[in-house]
Design a protein around this nucleic acid. Structure first.
Length: 920
RNA sequence: GGGCGCGUAGCUCAGUGGUAGAGCACUACGUUGACAUCGUAGGGGUCACUGGUUCGAACCCAGUCGCGCCCACCA
């Protein structure tokens, strides 16, 4: 065995060994009649790179997968990648531009898509390779891509089914439009960004020479007392450029300032168009001026107002967000739209804004400007303000299929962990809006709709089919593609071969756990629920584990623009995949984001080193599990103790993982392996192995080998590489650790209570001797005497039995029986450090010349004082009737026991004080 | 505006009714045959604040202050 564990050498070797031997294949290591256990990987972008969130997400999945595989379940971890419409198209377009190649438009659809496929082929393997680096044990032979033929057709099939059920329809609606990508996006892809903005107050002159009295001063009961005569209305806006598309001004039907103006017209400044003053309760008298300009084609609320009050909608922008004033798009009414003579055509909407404000000011129509913060909707990919835009789009009527998805979680058929996310899930689903599923992109699943010359729709899986339906009419296909999340929505059934009735669908669906971040609950989780239930009438998974976000050490979201991204691959190269995995696991607390700091990784890298060195110790001592060895029959107490401890650890780890308490699992293992196995048992074993009793030596070697082996198995789901390597080094097994059976150590059978309490007592004494020596600055190498003053015979015998351990582990001389039946005073024959022994008894370390008697007396008195304090605290509690009557009996009992222990300690301390006094 | 979460040791975080925990960092000592990526010992916290419930509160409840996030709206 090498003296150091070298992840960079071991990890690739072990991973290929697993992969080449089919260790990850669906059903590998499945025991007969065991149920299936299936996890669908949240498919990463095919052209993406692994970030910390992926590393975290997939580590947790891999833990669950490896754990179940070892337990004998029929396991499938289904991997795959997502085509990521906008993101991928964006990358390829940028590459073309950087390389000075023809642009998307110049290439045309077919040739552009070839470029995208090229890029996919070129970079698509990267993310898979990176997932392998962290040790993900997916069944790669089943890898799926959302644009692969089978999956592609499944997506179209879904569209066709839902279309035929009239759940998918086309309509001209106002949608969130991204002027950069020139596509519609869904509500979810819109981010609200707070910006410092301005509110402009514009005067819109009344038509036909009208004027009115506007109240300007009020008395105490808010009645107007003075008025000014106005021949204009004032409206407020944050987006002046949209005024060119104004087709009305709304006031509240009960706003007495304006009621008499309803039905009259104003002249839209700069444009000269007459637009109507309408009554609509959307206008809030308490906001702005109470009169609100209405631009139905560029504002969601205005669109609704326009529909209610029969105002036309005039689109004033191109799909790129540039002004375009003579579009003559009049979708809601039939007003005659006079030609606009303003020369703004082709100007960017924000440039136009400046000019319009300037023109309004020049015309004396700018009433006021205020600066204020407001939120502006931005495209989550383009990061520019989206534009509400009037277009033809496809929608999925989610309201009609949402019911079962809500029901499934309400009834607990699907459980969300942690539970608090259920609320978020419900609140979104219960207020769901139609889902805009069409995108004006090229990379994606092209909508399977063909149109004939009259515009009739033919929904079919292929052009041939559509032609048949159209009875030979000449057809053209809809140019739009589907939202990427539409295809992700059928990931569970799609990857298993739906719509075919495949054996995999039969075996693994519904799947068991979905492990995902909360940021895609709406995008993905809720939609999978809806779509699976709608298509195959079953839940996609029974459990949803929602994990938190990995943030940087300051709690900031990692992002490229902030430059605070920690690359998991770099961490893996520096510390090894196992260390990174253990770190993420130990921080995976439900419901709280994790701030990753490199210090944690270092700590767990050291843990991996510790495990390695313990393995070396076993090998140096030639530890193997003897053929006759049964851990339940170990005779030596120390051996029994550690056997009991590993059994308890196994139980705790299972319990933690069953409850998705990954951090508990990691911490339990850490505490056992380092705190118990290495710190104590290995040290004890050094003495045991020197025994002259060959049976004890054999039992100890077997125990070491067996307990360490169980530890490796329990660690394997979190630390797969190193445990596999150690397994190969230390144990001659037919199977690799990845396919070893997960232990089931019934604590009742494996733990010997007597051995546990005995060894724990000894550990306590060793600790306190070490502590005493250290406090008194006795050099650790100094070997000191150990006198026993107060002790029952029974306990003294135990103490004697462990003499050799005291000598090795606390550096003491053989113990000397100085017990005196008269407990009045300890018979201290030299300057001594006195120790109260847990559970009764007193020992001393005679340290002549080393310690200052007066100081030691002072220390003892201080000890006595603190004991007194504790005692009086406990006494107060026990004399409290409420406590005795209402506290649980075991708590009262425990308090009594503690009090007795303390009282014994104080007696011993008194005796020690007296002993010292005699010497002084 | 609605909702969720967080505030515990210098740092990163567990704990969640019964006398405060881990890792890292810090201090002292230490090369005993697994391990200096180590060992032993130690210092360090009125568990944000204020009230309440309780025999007992870091934990439950209410409020306050600070931080973060989600949803909605924004004339």
């Amino acid at each position: 065995m090498k003296s150091k564990f070298e992840p960079s050498e071991v990890e690739p070797r072990i991973y290929s060994m697993w992969e080449n031997s089919g260790a990850f294949s669906a059903g590998a290591n499945a025991r007969k009649d065991f149920p299936s256990f299936c996890i669908m990987i949240p498919p990463p972008n095919v052209t993406g790179a692994l970030h910390m969130g992926h590393a975290f997400n997939n580590t947790l999945q891999d833990i669950l997968i490896r754990w179940h595989r070892m337990k004998g379940f029929d396991v499938l971890w289904q991997p795959g990648q997502d085509h990521a419409g906008i993101a991928t198209q964006m990358v390829v377009e940028r590459q073309l531009e950087e390389a000075g190649l023809p642009s998307r438009d110049q290439l045309g659809r077919e040739r552009f898509l070839e470029k995208v496929w090229d890029w996919k082929e070129q970079s698509g393997g990267k993310i898979i390779h990176q997932l392998k680096r962290i040790g993900a044990s997916c069944d790669w032979s089943r890898n799926r891509f959302t644009m692969d033929k089978g999956f592609h057709d499944a997506v179209l099939k879904v569209f066709i089914e839902l279309y035929n059920q009239k759940l998918i329809y086309k309509g001209k609606r106002l949608v969130n439009w991204d002027p950069h990508f020139e596509t519609a996006i869904s509500d979810l892809e819109v981010e609200q960004v707070e910006v410092e903005g301005k509110m402009w107050y514009f005067r819109y002159p009344l038509a036909d020479g009208e004027s009115f009295n506007y109240p300007v001063e009020f008395d105490e009961s808010e009645n107007p007392v003075s008025f000014e005569t106005r021949n204009y209305l004032v409206v407020a806006t944050t987006r002046p450029e949209t005024m060119l598309g104004d087709t009305g001004v709304a006031v509240h039907p009960e706003d007495s300032r304006y009621t008499h103006l309803i039905g009259k017209d104003v002249i839209l400044p700069l444009v000269g168009r007459r637009i109507r003053i309408v009554a609509d309760s959307y206008a809030d008298p308490t906001k702005g001026t109470g009169a609100v300009k209405i631009t139905p084609a560029h504002d969601f609320n205005d669109w609704e107002v326009g529909k209610r009050t029969n105002l036309p909608a005039i689109n004033v922008m191109t799909s790129k967000g540039k002004m375009f004033l003579n579009a003559n798009d009049d979708f809601l009414g039939n007003l005659d739209i006079p030609e606009c003579t303003l020369e703004l055509d082709g100007l960017d909407r924000f440039e136009a804004r400046k000019i319009i404000v300037k023109l309004m000011a020049e015309n004396g129509l700018l009433d006021d400007v205020q600066t204020e913060k407001h939120t502006v909707p931005h495209g989550d990919r383009s990061k520019i303000p989206i534009e509400p835009y009037l277009t033809d789009q496809w929608f999925l009527d989610t309201k009609k299929i949402v019911g079962p998805a809500i029901e499934a979680v309400k009834t607990g058929r699907t459980r969300i962990h942690p539970k608090q996310y259920e609320k978020i899930y419900f609140s979104w689903l219960e207020n769901i809006e139609p889902w805009c599923i069409s995108r004006q992109l090229w990379w994606g699943h092209q909508i399977p709709i063909w149109y004939d010359e009259e515009g009739n729709q033919y929904c079919a899986i292929s052009e041939d089919e559509a032609k048949k339906m159209a009875k030979g009419k000449s057809l053209s296909r809809d140019q739009d593609v589907l939202d990427t999340w539409f295809s992700s929505g059928i990931w569970p059934i799609g990857t298993l071969g739906w719509p075919e009735a495949t054996p995999e669908l039969e075996r693994y669906f519904p799947t068991n756990v979905l492990v995902t971040g909360f940021d895609i609950i709406f995008f993905w989780v809720a939609r999978m629920m809806m779509m699976q239930l709608a298509l195959v009438n079953d839940i996609p998974f029974s459990d949803i584990y929602v994990h938190a976000l990995v943030r940087d050490k300051f709690g900031k979201k990692m992002s490229k623009s902030l430059g605070n991204v920690i690359d998991p691959i770099e961490l893996i190269e520096k510390y090894g995949a196992d260390s990174v995995r253990f770190t993420l696991t130990s921080m995976a607390v439900m419901g709280r984001d994790l701030k990753l700091s490199e210090g944690r990784v270092v700590g767990y890298r050291n843990f991996c080193t510790k495990i390695w060195n313990a393995g070396r110790f076993l090998q140096l001592n030639d530890c193997q599990i003897g053929p006759q060895f049964d851990p339940r029959n170990a005779t030596n107490e120390i051996n029994s103790w550690i056997i009991g401890e590993i059994a308890k650890t196994q139980e705790k780890v299972d319990n933690a993982l069953n409850n998705y308490r990954f951090n508990d699992a990691a911490n339990i293992l850490y505490a056992f392996v380092w705190g118990k196995l290495c710190d104590w048992y290995l040290e004890f074993s050094k003495t045991l192995l020197k025994s002259e009793d060959p049976e004890l030596v054999a039992e100890t070697k077997s125990t070491l080998a067996w307990v360490y082996k169980q530890s490796l198995v329990l660690l394997h789901p979190i630390i797969p590489f190193e445990t596999e390597e150690l397994w190969g080094e230390l144990y001659n097994e037919d199977t690799r650790i990845i396919h070893t059976d997960w232990p089931q150590l019934a604590v009742k059978e494996y733990e010997k209570a007597k051995a546990t309490s005995e060894v724990e007592w000894i550990i306590g004494i060793i600790r306190i001797i070490r502590s005493g020596k250290s406090l008194l600055r006795v050099p650790p190498s100094a070997i000191i005497p150990l006198n026993v003053h107060i002790m029952t015979d029974k306990r003294y015998e135990i103490l004697e039995k462990y003499q050799d351990f005291f000598e090795r582990m606390a550096r003491t001389k053989p113990l000397v029986d100085k017990r005196n039946p008269e407990f009045e005073s300890i018979n201290l024959d030299n300057e001594s450090f006195v120790i109260n022994v847990e559970g009764g008894g007193a020992i001393s370390l005679p340290l002549g010349g080393v310690i200052n008697l007066k100081l030691e007396k002072k220390r003892l008195i201080e000890t006595r004082e603190s004991l007194k304090k504790e005692i009086s605290m406990l006494k107060t509690r026990l004399s409290n009737e409420g406590f005795v009557a209402k506290a649980p009996p075991e708590v009262v009992e425990e308090t009594r026991e503690n009090l007795l222990k303390l009282e014994e300690k104080i007696l011993n301390t008194n005796a020690a004080v007296n002993g010292i006094q005699n010497l002084l």
